[in-house]
């Protein structure tokens, strides 16, 4: 492994930029992601920085089952994120549609049909600590030796 790669690994493990996109949820998971920002969980001590800008994100948190407006736009957002990138599905909604996947619904879950998902955090809603540990465990898998693997 080259020295450059080692430096990159070290830097990347302490700097994860997160964007979240809500594609039709009940808000429950939304506010649990927000709760991660609270000083009690202190997401920034792990070097995770939450801001809602896909163009500088590394990890995309997807919340919710897919509503009609997002069918094409979710893909757009995914393409705007620079490589290396990963998407994490938060809650039951993006995994299976949760309570919304019934007769008469307007949503079209799962999210996997639209963008590749790297990790899933089931729960309705999951606790902030679970979200946090999911981000922390998925990030090294994607970013470690990224350049060496993808030459």
């Amino acid at each position: 492994m080259s020295i450059l790669q080692e430096i990159k690994n070290a830097v990347r493990s302490r700097s994860i930029h997160v964007a979240y996109v809500d594609v039709g949820s009940c808000n429950g998971c939304d506010i649990e992601v927000l709760a991660c920002l609270a000083p009690r969980y202190d997401i920034e001590q792990y070097g995770i920085y939450v801001h809602n800008n896909p163009r500088e994100a590394d990890v995309l948190l997807v919340i919710g089952s897919v509503t009609p407006q997002w069918v094409d736009k979710l893909r757009d957002i995914w393409e705007k994120i620079p490589e290396p990138k990963a998407a994490v599905a938060i809650g039951n909604c993006p995994i299976s549609g949760c309570v919304y996947a019934r007769r008469g619904t307007l949503t079209t879950p799962p999210v996997e049909n639209y963008i590749p998902i790297a990790a899933q955090v089931p729960g309705c809603p999951p606790r902030p600590t679970e979200i946090l540990s999911a981000i922390l465990s998925v990030a090294p898998l994607i970013y470690k030796d990224y350049e060496e693997k993808h030459r």
């Binding site: 809500d22 594609v23 039709g24 949820s25 009940c26 429950g28 919710g64 089952s65 509503t67 009609p68 407006q69 997002w70 949760c98 309570v99 919304y100 019934r102 007769r103 008469g104 619904t105 307007l106 949503t107």
Partner: peptide
């Protein structure tokens, strides 16, 4: 239209035991 899940349409024809949880969501 970004969050339209059609929850009223899902609720129709279901027993209250189910609608109770849907209402929360």
């Amino acid at each position: 239209g970004y969050m339209k899940k059609g929850i009223e349409r899902i609720m129709r024809g279901r027993p209250w035991q189910e609608v109770m949880f849907l209402a929360e969501r």
